[in-house]
């Protein structure tokens, strides 16, 4: 079996009914999809399968043979975050971070499908994603901001090459 994961084609050797989640995490070492409930009820393992948000724990790898899989690593790079990643960053939408990859993927798919940015539609979209820190308000703020075009994908937080860090971290090496 073969998968294209974040643009790179990979041969897959796991057994055919292995959930895609375990293939990504254990065979390919991509650990951003989280193994939360592993029965479709928490949303933490959500990835894009051919552009659609799907639960990696509910898909046998044989059922997605040949598909394009995108995890948060494929949405943007640290020096060039995607719009939704930047919005999460600027709106403090991650707390412990366990639900964040799933939230980002679902929100990214929502934006790609022309989501209106109305809070009710964002709530409906994210209704299958559980945040045990209960940080929903900031998450919804971030998605609304990204849908409203308020956030660009320009990464303005990390220092660019040759620039000094804008954030002083006590105790950090100079």
């Amino acid at each position: 079996m073969r998968l294209t994961v974040n643009g790179i084609e990979r041969g897959i050797e796991s057994a055919p009914l292995t959930p895609l989640l375990y293939v990504l995490r254990e065979e390919l070492g991509i650990t951003s999809p989280k193994a939360g409930c592993q029965q479709g009820g928490c949303g933490a393992c959500t990835v894009l399968v051919d552009g659609e948000a799907r639960r990696a724990c509910l898909l046998a790898v044989a059922a997605v043979d040949g598909a394009e899989i995108t995890t948060v690593e494929g949405l943007g790079a640290p020096e060039a975050l995607s719009a939704i990643q930047t919005a999460f960053h600027e709106h403090y939408a991650a707390q412990c971070g366990f639900c964040t990859s799933g939230m980002l993927i679902a929100a990214h798919a929502y934006l790609e499908h022309g989501g209106s940015g109305e809070r009710e539609s964002i709530q409906e979209t994210l209704s299958g994603h559980v945040c045990r820190c209960t940080g929903y308000v900031k998450i919804i703020d971030a998605v609304a901001a990204a849908a409203g075009g308020e956030i660009t994908s320009r990464q303005k937080w990390l220092p660019q090459t040759g620039e000094e860090s804008p954030v002083e971290v006590p105790g950090a090496p100079a």
Binding site: Q38, Q39, G40, C57, A60
Partner: peptide, 19 residues
């Protein structure tokens, strides 16, 4: 039989079903 897999996959994951 696996169609969408939303019911069957957790059964396999949790060892309640060994096809």
């Amino acid at each position: 039989v696996i169609a969408g897999g939303t019911i069957v996959l957790p059964e396999i994951t949790y060892g309640r079903l060994r096809p």
